[in-house]
Design a protein around this nucleic acid. Structure first.
Lengths: 248, 248
DNA sequence: ATAGCATATTTATCATATAATTAAGAAGGC
DNA sequence: GCCTTCTTAATTATATGATAAATATGCTAT
């Protein structure tokens, strides 16, 4: 989805490598980032390339540089978490239930209102997009489509139909996060994707022109997701406790 | 707030200039962006600088470049609207009620839930921050503080207290957008900042540990803001209609 | 017409030199 | 001793020129 942008040149590869390393905490925040020359050596590339990579990471809030002082990792507060690349890098290497929970809380804020707005503003084409996504989910039940892909498609279709540019920005983020959450689904038996019935109810409300119902239905779905994440977090804690008990 | 990052060097200035021009539509989307050499000439700077500026804009989704094909403006869908710089550039030159409305819809999604979460998670320090912001608003009523700044401080304090990293990302965006909306307040007499009573009610709910009330109160406040924006949009439309009528 | 080839244009990468910035230490005055 | 000022050195910032890689475009041969 996003690879259209980074046209896979050396600069972008190094940007990606450094970005992943930084969000994974390989360079302790606040200090100790390699100098230009050191980076050139490390990656075997020219200064132009390294400088451009550093500039891209600066643009995303991960780094800042000043003469004589060197290049520094910005405090995590300044990382542009809502940048699809940054979130993708985080999920790639620093996957954590806490991050997924926070992101799902974000979805719980956005998506119900997107559904609300979609009820009022969706064009026929956009509504058809939602219908098709639901159809894909149904097909996936019988193995004729991918369950995760079709689920993503449904939520993205709602965002698209919201007629709000900021909501549409979340498409890439949802894509990254859900694609990654599949690990969660595999890891914890209790966690499953929301049911087709729940998704269908949202579409019904939109078709019926009932914004409040659409909002409520979507909220319900995300509350369920949050519940499952909480369960998984508790499961993790129990496992940790068990491990500690075993160690004693 | 954000100037900590861009340390005001030539590269950043040119990035800013180009960014503003792009979002203002000076280069028609899809084609006709100057070549490296042309940009050097235009800005009287070296290729290094221009290349780094273009990379930063690429990182924010405004541009994409390929050999032989040249550098292109990305479709607006791909602009990282949730990047504080990009939103700032848009508001700086392309201020529109539609954008403010869409952003306020976004706030209506985020802030009520931030208030909800803050009720459960805010630390004492964070709660104190909210109290102080409200105190500043009260002081502003008597001319002892800035009304806009204190209003911004209040909303940012709630986001900070949400304990959710994604919500905290909105701080810079709110700051940019509200700082800009003051034009709206000046332009349309009907539009005013939400009352201290409304803000106080949110704080009360948080202090009382009532998340639902906090959420409802915050929603109410943003609904009022949306109403005022709608009024302003209607006013604009009427003015347009009047102008057209006068032209006939 | 179609496939393959040549060419020219643009960005991508490399290399090197110089300037600007500023932290840290040295020197000097009180 | 302590403060101020100057010097120095380290690092990024900027400039320039050269070469490589990618690829639209048009040409050629069949």
């Amino acid at each position: 989805m996003r690879q259209s942008r980074g046209h896979r040149n050396l600069t972008w590869n190094i940007t990606h490598d450094l970005g992943v390393s930084i969000v994974a905490g390989e360079y302790s925040s606040g200090a100790a980032f390699p100098t230009e020359a050191e980076l050139c050596l490390k990656f075997g590339a020219s200064r132009s390339v390294l400088r451009e990579a550093v500039k891209m990471l600066t643009a995303k809030g991960l780094l800042s540089a000043r003469p004589r002082q060197g290049t520094r990792i910005e405090s995590e507060d300044n990382w542009n978490l809502l940048d699809p690349d940054v979130l993708g890098w985080l999920l790639e290497r620093k996957f954590s239930l806490a991050l997924i929970r926070e992101f799902t809380e974000t979805r719980r804020a956005f998506e119900p209102q997107a559904a609300y707005l979609a009820t009022q503003r969706a064009t026929d084409v956009e509504k058809e997009g939602i219908r098709q996504a639901l159809a894909r989910m149904k097909a996936a039940e019988h193995g004729d489509d991918d369950p995760l892909q079709s689920d993503i498609a449904f939520h993205v279709a709602i965002l698209k139909a919201s007629g709000n540019r900021f909501f549409k920005q979340l498409e890439d983020l949802i894509d990254s996060a859900l694609r990654c959450s599949i690990r969660l689904t595999n890891q914890f038996k209790g966690v499953r994707l929301a049911s087709i019935a729940d998704h269908g109810a949202v579409l019904e409300a939109i078709e019926a022109g009932d914004p409040d119902a659409a909002q409520v239905r979507m909220t319900k779905m995300l509350d369920e997701a949050l519940e499952l994440i909480t369960e998984a977090e508790n499961g993790n804690n129990q496992r940790l406790a068990a491990r500690q008990a075993a160690a004693n």
